[in-house]
Design a protein around this nucleic acid. Structure first.
Length: 913
DNA sequence: AACTGTGGCGCCCACT
DNA sequence: AGTGGGCGCCACAGTT
């Protein structure tokens, strides 16, 4: 690419002098009322923001290199070792080498291994060595070690090119400092990949897999697979291309290799507080650590408690297991020392929010108590904490990941607290606190502390270690080191996966701007303002009650489209003259390459097929033994997480393979698929009463019709259409994404209705749920008569209770999440923000982004009061009646009941009755 | 000054 | 990680 070179050189020299950083736009002066000023004053007193903001800006720059802090903090592997599971990788600055962490299951310990291959950090340039020598900032850069010529396949132009690999002394010489090589070159490639990841890719190492040291050499342990399994899977992929078939031996061992058993302990600390609503600040760690509970999956149950003056001992809790050991300390520093000693003994420490609270608190507290640095194993980073001798897993972070919550655990918990997650997944709750932590007797404190720690451990052990198995599988699939799975969101898993696949195949990892420049932006207009492209199609619902409804949906629609349409960032609007305007994406100006198989298409298609054709059916197959079935279910869940996120990331500007044409083509083809299906249904005389993105709701279709339709889809669209569910009846209003369906079993599906939303007051939810219960028993048209009467009674009761102010504040509270910091709400002041500001001004309680605000509607000037400050007598009953009406009308309207009429609002009917 | 209509903010959810 | 959609309310403009 000769023109490219020149222009990149030109831009380089041209831009030398113009290193201007964008000035911050002036803050707009907003007229403020007195109360707003008051709020701001309090806010500024509460925190000094300067440092925080600076940190955030630094973080946004790029991901931190994971650096080994102390030289070899764990024992090194001997020259001959048993097979060990590769868990983590880092970079050791002191030796300038990659450092691997392996788990030896024989002694349950972590062992370290330094790279012995003399692998070095590098980046790529499109300039020849001679050309590079002419650029003085490069020529004079003392950290360059060597140049190598390498061949790379450039997918964007579909050509093999020659590049110069510039080897340097250390990762920061590539990028991260102002004088780094990245800033000295006109353009650098693969220069933003963390070194320890580069190391994994180049050596083709897979975290989560087994390796051993033989005579000082680091070698993979071969995974034997059952011949029958291999055969069966090969037959599934028999019609696929060679490129897809090649993936089988690569990925199958990663899915099927056994799972390591990881010895681990969960830890939870309690800090003295006078006020339940105040959380201690880990940056200052002013208060005493009064208790630490450590619970291991090896049976350890230890609670370290600080003896405090004037605090009663109390009685040992009866529920506390007999083998739980309570150790009392007179001295807090010694308590911490013992905590550290126990932690160091485990290869893995589990916390719940330890990144942001327990670990930074312990560390700062240790510092305050003058515990020596060497004795403290905690390393506090801006976004997370790590341990010198162990790995750290923050369960809060993991379960908080949207992809994990939705796909792996099916949205069973929709609030991420220890309480909510454990009650949803473990079927147990948290111990209710009857007092502030500071007021508990020591034994009460022990019990409370122990319980949280035990629950935290169980979040990783329940269901036969499903959490750990999921993580290991995600590591093996996406090549992420253990701790990175938690620290980073799903987009970086996919980024990592794709980086590794590029490197392994000798493909150049393109720079993001190149993709945008060569593949272009989106060409459709989104329906919602501010979005980048048009998304899924939602069919106008046919209002009314429909009996016998069958729902068909496309099996993982978007991944299927990516596969069958050969979509990939390089196949969109490809560079081949002859491909232009051949295979066009409907509704767009984009064409798809006809010469080359798209990499995304191959990878996503393969994973999708593995899941749909192998792991998912086998997980349900009763002829397969239970253990295997369970294992397969975990695998299919892990694959689902990665597959489903793979479409969205291409529409995310920060994703390194950001490619709007790819994202919008996928959605556009999806719209076409559902449109064609509806058209086909019409031709066949089937009534389509609703549909959303990938589904069609059909009114009493026959078995033959369904079968015919599925066949047609397979032939015509090449996408699998499946029967997803059948409703005894379905209630539709004129609103989209809003319906209530009753299965033959009586189970009820409620979608989108206000009665289900978490910001609806509990008392209305309760009435709503009662109504739903009544509706679930309706079998025929005639049954509605009885149901209607029952429902009317229910609503009337609730109405009079409300009028008589019989509901307590809790039942009336709206629960709304604060999604931004309080001072970020500048355009409008929503009600929950008003309530949060009341709390700040009147009680000094500072709510932060992520907190839930509970408020009630009142007749006060704000129209709303935070529940903590409210009084039942001031409740605005009319507002609640309106709320009841809008919520309940969504179910009442379709079954022909009028809310107004129940309430006795005079209608003509009532008048003459 | 009090009312009415309306765009858009903010939240939550449905689907991928 | 993406878009589509419902709802309540706020802020503001225009009218009486």
């Amino acid at each position: 690419m000769p023109e490219k070179k020149q222009s990149s050189l030109e831009t380089f020299f041209g831009s030398q002098s113009s290193e201007i950083k964008g000035d911050r736009p002036d803050k707009k002066e907003q007229p403020t009322t007195k109360s707003q000023e008051e709020v701001k004053e309090v806010e500024s007193k509460m925190i000094s923001k300067e440092e925080e903001i600076e940190e955030e800006e630094l973080e946004e720059e790029e991901e931190e290199e994971d650096i080994l802090e102390d030289k070899a903090p764990i024992e090194l592997c001997p020259d001959n070792s048993p097979p060990c599971c590769l868990l983590h990788s880092l970079y050791d600055g002191s030796t300038g080498r990659a450092f691997l962490m392996l788990l030896n299951e024989h002694d349950n310990r972590l062992y370290g291994w330094y790279d012995q291959t003399n692998h070095q950090p590098y980046c790529l340039s499109d300039l020849s060595v001679e050309e590079l020598q002419r650029i003085s900032p490069v020529k004079n850069y003392k950290n360059i070690v060597d140049y190598q010529i390498v061949k790379k396949q450039n997918l964007l132009i579909d050509k093999e090119i020659s590049m110069t690999k510039i080897l340097v002394t250390d990762p920061l010489a590539v990028g991260g400092r102002s004088d780094s090589l990245r800033n000295r070159l006109p353009e650098a490639w693969e220069a933003r990949i963390r070194y320890h990841k580069n190391y994994l890719y180049d050596r083709n190492l897979v975290p989560g897999m087994y390796y051993q040291i033989q005579e000082g050499k680091f070698i993979p342990v071969k995974q034997e697979l059952a011949v029958s399994v291999k055969k069966e899977i090969e037959s599934i992929f028999k019609d696929e291309s060679e490129e897809v078939k090649k993936l089988i031996p690569q990925y199958l061992p990663r899915f099927l290799a056994r799972m390591p058993h990881i010895r681990r302990a969960a830890m939870d600390i309690e800090v003295f507080t006078e006020n339940m609503n105040r959380i201690a600040d880990p940056k200052k760690a002013k208060e005493e650590v009064i208790s630490v509970a450590i619970v291991g999956n090896d049976g350890l149950k230890k609670i370290l408690v600080l003896k405090r003056e004037n605090v009663p001992l109390g009685k040992r809790a009866g529920e506390l297991p007999r083998d739980a050991e309570i150790v009392f300390f007179d001295n807090e520093a010694n308590l911490l020392r013992e905590t550290f000693r126990i932690m160091n003994d485990y290869p893995l420490i589990i916390t719940f929010n330890g990144d942001n609270f327990d670990l930074p608190y312990l560390s700062q507290r240790a510092y305050n108590l003058r515990i020596k640095k060497e004795e403290n194993p905690i390393i506090v980073r801006s976004r997370y904490c790590k341990l010198k001798h162990s790995l750290h897993f923050d369960a809060y972070r993991f379960f908080n990941q949207a992809a994990i919550r939705v796909y792996a655990f099916g949205g069973k918990y929709n609030e991420v607290s220890l309480d909510a997650i454990s009650s949803a997944l473990l079927d147990v709750g948290k111990v209710e606190l009857e007092n502030d932590i500071g007021d508990l007797s020591l034994h009460r404190l022990v019990w409370y502390n122990y319980w949280d720690s035990k629950i935290t451990l169980e979040l990783t052990t329940f269901n036969n270690d499903i959490t750990i198995r999921l993580i290991i599988l995600l590591m093996r699939l996406t090549r992420m080191p253990f701790e990175d799975i938690n620290r980073q969101a799903v987009s970086s898993w996919i980024r990592n996966w794709l980086f590794a696949e590029h490197r392994q195949r000798g493909y150049l990892i393109p720079n993001s701007e190149e993709i945008i420049q060569s593949r272009g932006e989106s060409s459709t207009k989104a329906i919602i303002k501010g979005k980048k492209y048009k998304g899924g199609l939602v069919v106008e619902p046919q209002p009314g009650i429909h009996f016998d409804v069958t729902v068909l949906d496309f099996a993982s629609l978007y991944p299927s489209i990516i596969k069958t349409w050969n979509l990939s960032y390089e196949t969109m609007n490809c560079s081949h003259e002859s491909c232009k305007n051949q295979v066009m994406v409907p509704e767009t100006d984009h064409w798809v390459c006809t010469k080359r198989k798209g990499l995304m298409s191959i990878l996503i298609g393969f994973i999708r097929d593995m899941r749909v054709f192998w792991f998912k059916p086998k997980a349900k197959d009763q002829s397969v033994d239970q253990n295997t079935r369970e294992a397969y279910d975990v695998i299919q869940a892990a694959l689902k997480v990665v597959i489903n996120a793979s479409y969205g990331v291409f529409g995310a500007p920060h994703f390194p393979f950001y490619c709007p044409p790819l994202a919008e083509a996928t959605a556009a083809i999806g719209r076409q698929a559902i449109r064609k299906t509806i058209e086909r249904c019409k031709q066949m005389g089937i009534e389509v009463i609703y549909g959303d993105t990938d589904s069609v709701f059909l009114k009493h279709p026959t078995e033959q019709q369904i079968e015919k339709l599925i066949d047609w889809s397979q032939k015509e669209l090449k996408i699998d259409l499946d029967v997803e569910k059948n409703y005894r009846y379905l209630a539709l209003s004129e609103r989209k994404k809003n319906y209530l369906g009753v299965y033959p079993s009586g189970k009820v599906d409620v979608k989108g209705l206000l009665g289900k939303k978490r910001n609806t007051p509990p008392f209305i939810k309760e009435v709503f749920n009662e109504i739903v219960k009544i509706l679930s028993s309706v079998k025929k048209e005639e049954d509605f008569e009885v149901a209607r009467e029952q429902i009317k009674g229910l609503v009337k009761d609730s109405y009079s209770k409300l009028k008589n102010k019989e509901y307590p504040l809790e039942a009336l509270a709206f629960q709304v999440q604060l999604n931004k910091q309080l001072d970020q709400y500048v355009k409008t002041t929503p009600q929950h923000v008003k309530a949060a500001r009341q709390l700040l001004v009147e009680k000094g309680d500072k709510k932060v982004a992520g907190d839930f605000i509970y408020f009630v509607k009142t007749v006060d000037s704000d129209g709303v009061r935070a529940i903590e400050l409210a009084d039942v007598s001031r409740i605005d009953t009319d507002k609640y009646i309106a709320q009841m009406e809008s919520t309940l009308a969504q179910v009442l309207e379709p079954i022909g009941v009028s809310f107004d009429r129940i309430m006795g609002v005079r209608s003509l009917d009532d008048f003459f009755a």
